[in-house]
Computed example of a mutant assay.
Amino acid sequence: MIGTDYTVNLLDFSGNLIRTIKLQQLPINLAFSPDSQRIAILGDPDELSVWGAKGELLAKYTIPESGSEFKFVEFAPDGKSIAVGGRRVRIYPNQTLDELIATGCEWLEDYFTTYPEEKEKLPACQ
């Protein structure tokens, strides 16, 4: 249930409160991931936040075009990306921290070839 007090209340099928998620922006819309382990919440005017099923913040994105243009949020069927839309659509990755770090290390691979000592400074990229 989306509240007007910057909260999202998660209820079970009987209507009992499971968890309350406190946001920094007024929630407009939300979507559950296909595996029901993540919740994407679109906040007004310019925030997309991704939460774990236990209520932990996993990621937060600032939508460059703020305002009321974006009204909808939806996970891709494979759960790997999140679409935020209205008149336009923006796509955001839905990755764990480990997946994001691995992606960053892949992007830096050419740099590490030239500067191998820099790779040694980043244990996550070993």
Rank of each mutant, 00 (worst) to 15 (best):
M1R: 10
L108P: 01
P27V: 15
A83I: 09
K71V: 07
F72S: 05
D78P: 14
K54T: 14
G55F: 10
Q126G: 00
A53P: 00
F75P: 01
F72Y: 14
P123C: 09
G85T: 14
W51C: 08
K80W: 13
I91L: 10
I39W: 02
E120K: 15
S33M: 04
S66L: 04
Q126P: 07
I21K: 05
P34L: 13
W107Q: 14
I39Q: 03
I39V: 10
P64N: 04
L10M: 13
G79E: 02
N94Y: 08
C125N: 04
G15P: 07
E99C: 12
Q25D: 03
P45F: 12
L42V: 15
C125Q: 05
Y111K: 07
E106I: 15
T96R: 03
I82C: 00
K60P: 00
L11D: 05
G79W: 04
Q25N: 09
W51I: 11
S68K: 12
Q25I: 03
L108W: 09
T113C: 08
G15Y: 10
W107C: 07
G15W: 09
L11F: 15
E120W: 14
R38L: 11
L17D: 06
I41A: 02
E74M: 08
A124N: 01
L10H: 11
T103M: 06
V73W: 00
K119I: 05
A40W: 02
T7I: 10
Q25F: 09
F70R: 04
G104T: 09
Q24T: 11
L57C: 14
R19Q: 15
K121T: 13
F32P: 07
L97G: 03
E74A: 10
L48Q: 06
